[in-house]
Amino acid sequence: MRNLFTFIWRNHFYFLFALLEVIAFALIINSTVYQRWVFVNSTQKITGSVYSVYANLQEYFNLRNTNQILARENALLHQALQHPTYRHDEKPFGKDSLPYPSQYQYIDAKVISNTVTLRNNYLMLNKGKRHGVDKDMAVISSNGIVGIVINASNNFSWVMSVLNDNTKINGKLLKDNYQGSLTWDGGNYRTGTLSDLPAHVGLAQGDTIVTSGYSLLFPEGIMIGTIEDFNIGKGDHFYTIKVHFSVDYNNLRYVYVVKNLMRKEQISVMKHL
């Protein structure tokens, strides 16, 4: 027994090394995407506040750019309203004046931490359960898709970015509705890959790809990007398309969390199949 202790003491450097590596690997294994939230929740209070301070500081340097984006979006929204004053003739505008119940609700949020350099990238938003944000909600910016909320605490939420191995988003061609699935294969953060689009479809560089609306998360027609390049492998029946993202993920500040109000109903319909 004494020999054992002497042995351990003489080699304590290597034993300590092994112990620390075991702890580190335990942390890695326990932090796969879906279990990660436990850890995130407990440390978010500290890191979240550090990132909040930093994001506040950084905000000032982007004010001009942000204003331009918001102004352009306002103009688009005005256009979408289509002369709202004419409606008053038919029906006074009130609580029930919308002809159909709306399916999506938008919650604005600020990005307080974000990466594009890793293989699997995540963002943190400054809104959480208190503001109605919860997991399995889509995140978009005024330029296009951003990601999916995978966990929310009371004040913060954790978003799996489009730039992530686990994110797969259904996209379609804006011009004729053929659909495929969008992934990101590492490398350049400005381009992704759209696959499963049948080879008989006519494509051109610069064609627009938008969300298909087939998922329960993203509304239809949210911008994904434009076709930069495309090819068909030998003996393949599907295109491999290089998509240039419309969003610069390295320069995200304000985003919208999209809440699908009919998600529960949609899921229950599928269960009955």
């Binding site: 702890i23 580190a24 942390l27 890695i28 326990n30 932090s31 500290i46 890191t47 550090v50």
Partner: peptide, 22 residues
């Protein structure tokens, strides 16, 4: 370990920085 762990906590990367630094 402490250095790697601190970077991990801030980058939400589990323990990869800790493992590599040790």
């Amino acid at each position: 370990f402490f250095l790697g762990f601190t970077v991990d906590v801030f980058s939400n990367t589990g323990g990869i920085h800790a493992a590599a630094t040790v």
